[in-house]
């Protein structure tokens, strides 16, 4: 039973390191999801815009990000952000040393931009499901744009978008495994380090897999109850 020793907490084992890495994974995922949701507000507005150019920008964003491997997007943003910041620093302040942005920030931004493309599609879809008649009815009783948005659109869009956003969350959670290439010590990176120094890769990658399973299972339970909450007051057909 060597693996119990390897995974024990404290100085001897790697258990506490793995748990700390799990916290990092959770933090990155939550930040990325929030960034993604923020981005998706603009993405949705752009994709539903009447202006052709803005619509094209929105479409390009979702198509490109969803059509390129996540690993490449992360690499591109990781190096791209650093290069951009360095060239800005150089041209504005004449600072020509190597600058490295905090890895956590870059990781959250990179995964957030990926997650935002998927969230955009989900939220756009949910907006289109709200019947036009309801918006017209709201306008006809004298609601202004903000009230229509706040009282009529948001409650329904949230309900329709929730299952889709749940899927995006699961995707985001799993995509954070790829940010190990940036050197941020999340679950995968920690498992990689630990297996390198103990020569027991199976033990650590298996524990990584189990940690991810725990995270995805816990979140799917939470999402189920969130859906039930959002759907209270809606009569549902028995499947």
């Amino acid at each position: 039973m060597e693996f119990i020793h390897l995974l024990s907490l404290g100085d001897q084992g790697w258990g506490d390191e793995m748990l700390r890495a799990t916290m990092v994974t959770i933090m990155v995922s939550i930040s990325a999801m929030c960034i993604g949701l923020f981005v998706s507000i603009f993405g949705t507005i752009a994709k539903l815009s009447k202006n052709r150019l803005i619509r094209a920008i929105g479409n390009t964003y979702t198509t490109v990000v969803r059509g390129i491997p996540e690993l490449l997007v992360i690499y591109l943003l990781y190096f791209g952000f650093n290069n951009a910041v360095m060239s800005i620093a150089n041209s504005l302040f004449g600072y020509n040393q190597y600058i490295e942005l905090p890895v956590f920030l870059i990781a959250a931004l990179a995964v957030g931009i990926i997650s935002g493309a998927y969230s955009t599609e989900v939220i756009r879809g949910a907006f289109l499901v709200v019947p036009r008649g309801q918006i017209e009815a709201a306008k006809s009783v004298g609601m202004n744009k903000f009230l229509v948005f706040y009282r009529v659109l948001i409650p329904q869009v949230l309900r329709y978008a929730l299952p889709g956003l749940g899927n995006v969350w699961q995707l985001t959670l799993k995509d954070t495994a790829l940010i190990m290439v940036t050197g941020l010590v999340e679950i995968m990176r920690q498992a990689h380090i630990a297996s390198g120094s103990t020569y027991s890769p199976f033990t650590f990658y298996m524990s990584a897999a189990i940690l991810y399973l725990v995270l995805t299972t816990a979140s799917s339970m939470a999402l189920n109850s969130a859906e039930n909450w959002a759907n209270k007051g809606v009569k549902r057909e028995k499947a």
């Binding site: 995968m188 297996s195 890769p201 033990t203 990658y205 298996m206 991810y212 399973l213």
Partner: peptide, 23 residues
Amino acid sequence: VFYFRGTPLLVQIFLIYYGLAQF
């Protein structure tokens, strides 16, 4: 299905390529 949909593909790849060599 639960296992392979609940874990990242990267873990699955590493587990097979690096992991199995442990035995």
